[in-house]
Every structure is written in structure tokens, then in C-alpha cells.
Amino acid sequence: MLRNLLWATSKHDVYLMQNYSVVHWSSLLKRGKEILNVAKPVVPTSKYPGSLAQILPRVQISTMTVKDNLMVAGGFQGELVCKYLNQSGVAFSTKITTGVNAITNAVDVYRNPSGSMRVMSANNDAQVRVFDTENFARLSCYSFPWSVNNTSVSPDGKLIAVLGDSTECLLVDAQSGKVISSLKGHLDYSFASDWHPNGQILATGNQDTTCRLWDIRNLSESAAVLKGRMGAIRAVRFSSDGRFMAMAEPADFVHIFDTSSDYAKAQEIDLFGEIAGISFSPDTEALFVGVADRRYGSLLEYNRRHYNRYMDSIL
């Protein structure tokens, strides 16, 4: 399963999926509060001219993200749900696609080069769709030859990494959808990607149990190959200062690399259970790991330990 079901907006604020809800967990107050409930029909409260808003039946959340006060969730039946954290109700909901391969595999919130906020969805129907956040109108729809499992937009908003059921990863022009480069080296399908904050390094996680690093100044081959312990690399995250990169396997293992050592120094977190997502806090002081195991489901917090540059568990 593709798992991006956990996002930290500060060291003390984490949003995670729990059954048919998205819950805000405060590590200061040590308690959670339901922010979004999709167990019942989802009714968008705002009416935007030209938008594709729909009332949705119960949504099983497949992926989510929280950025700039906007929470976006995707569903297993091709749904897209958008909610502003400072507003009650759902701002926008729709069913992107109704095909057999309808699952929304990934969602992203980003700003284009002019600073406008956009929502991007990647779907199993081999489509990538872009919506604005003014009236949630669909702006673009880009088609690819295989199911798209993940997208990530470069820090300057100009490039999209497109990954899916192919050994190749694509770099695509965000404005036109035109393929600029094909990244070759992985041996299986890809599921995760993230950009270093400097915009020069792209990390891609693959079923072949590796994460490859690509320098966009020289894309002829990957700059480095980082190995997991046992399983596919299903989540990849850089810290906002670019100092750390974390990657998660489907279960049991999270790896943290020190980017300043050319990724030579690493720490392995060995836990128990399926991993629902990983997220650094924006100040890079904490790493949160979601565990989706039915018996041992939990949220783990690891704090940055400055004297030896590694992360310290505070379970």
C-alpha cells in the first residue's frame, strides 16, 4: 500500500489518518482532536463557480498532505477532499475519476513560480491533475503511459517528478506537462520522491529496495544509491534545512541520512509494525513516524539530538 498518512506542521502539531478521520495530535497537550470525518457523506460547504465539487459517500483515505493551512486527502475510489484548517466544513470534494484504476495515490500542495497555490493529484488511471485553490477549478491534466504512484514538485515550482509503474522516473515541465528527462537506473516500480530544499537533488524510492539520488545538473545516471534493509522504499522526506533525509520501508525500518556527509552517515530506526508515513517538523527538531499496525498502532516522535547530530527517541 502507498502510505503518506502523516504530516507535521510544527514540532507540536501532527495530522494523521485514523480510521475514517484525520486527527490533529498536539504533543504539547498530549491529546488528539478530529479535524476531518469522512465516514459519513462529505458535503462541500463552499460553492465555487466552475468547480467540479461533488457530495461524496464515505471515503476511505489513501493519501494526504497538509501545507499552508490546507489539508488535502485522496481516496481509494478516486476522491479528492480539500479542507482549510481554520475553517469548519470541507471546502471542496470531488471524484476525480470513476475508472477501475481510480485510486488517488498521492496528493501535493505547492506554489507555482508566480506564488499561486496549487493542488496536484496522482492517480492509478495514469493521470496527473492540477487544481487551483481559489475556486478549485481544474487547470491541467497530464497523461502518462503507466499508473502514477507519486509526484513531487521542485522547490521553485517549475519541475514535477513523476513516478509510477515503470522502472523510469520522469522529470516534467510543470507548466506544459512536457517530459524533459527520463531517469534510468531503478529496477522496479517507484513509490516515493522528494526534493532537497536547494532544488538540485531529487530522491526517488523504489520497489527494488533502494532510494536513488539524482543531481538535476547531470541526469545521465544517479548520483548515489541508498539501500534499505528489507523492503521497498515507500516514503522519502528531506528536512526543511536539507540536513537530513529520511526514508521508510513498508514496515519496521526507517533510515535517516546526514546529507552533509554525502549520505555516508546514517541512523536506522528499528520499530515494529506497518509504517503509515514519516514527517519532519518544519524546524527539523523532530521526526514523526506513524505506525498503522492494528494491534500496535501509534505515533512515534524522535527528537534531534544536537551533540551527536542524530535523532533521539522519545516514545
Rank of each mutant, 00 (worst) to 15 (best):
L5K: 13
T9C: 12
H12S: 15
Y20P: 03
Y20R: 14
S21Q: 15
H24M: 13
W25P: 05
W25Q: 11
L28K: 13
L28D: 15
V43G: 04
S46L: 09
R58M: 12
V72A: 03
G74E: 08
G78V: 06
L80A: 04
S93M: 03
T94D: 04
V100A: 13
N101A: 13
A102Y: 04
N105D: 12
V107R: 03
A126I: 04
D132P: 01
E134H: 10
Y142R: 07
S143Y: 08
N150P: 04
T151L: 05
T151P: 02
V153D: 02
P155H: 05
K158W: 02
D165A: 14
S166D: 15
E168V: 11
S176R: 10
S181R: 14
G185M: 10
Y189E: 13
S190N: 13
A192P: 05
W195I: 09
A203F: 06
T204V: 15
N206W: 00
D208F: 06
T209C: 14
I216W: 00
N218R: 11
A223Y: 10
L226D: 05
M230W: 10
S239N: 06
D241T: 07
G242E: 07
G242S: 09
M245S: 02
A246E: 06
M247A: 11
E249N: 08
P250H: 02
V254E: 08
F257H: 06
T259W: 00
T259G: 02
D262I: 01
A266R: 08
L271D: 05
L271Y: 05
G273E: 06
G273A: 10
I275S: 06
I278D: 08
S281Q: 00
S281I: 02
D283Q: 09
T284D: 15
L287G: 01
V289D: 00
V291L: 12
R294P: 14
L299W: 00
L300V: 09
Y310C: 07
M311A: 04
L315E: 10
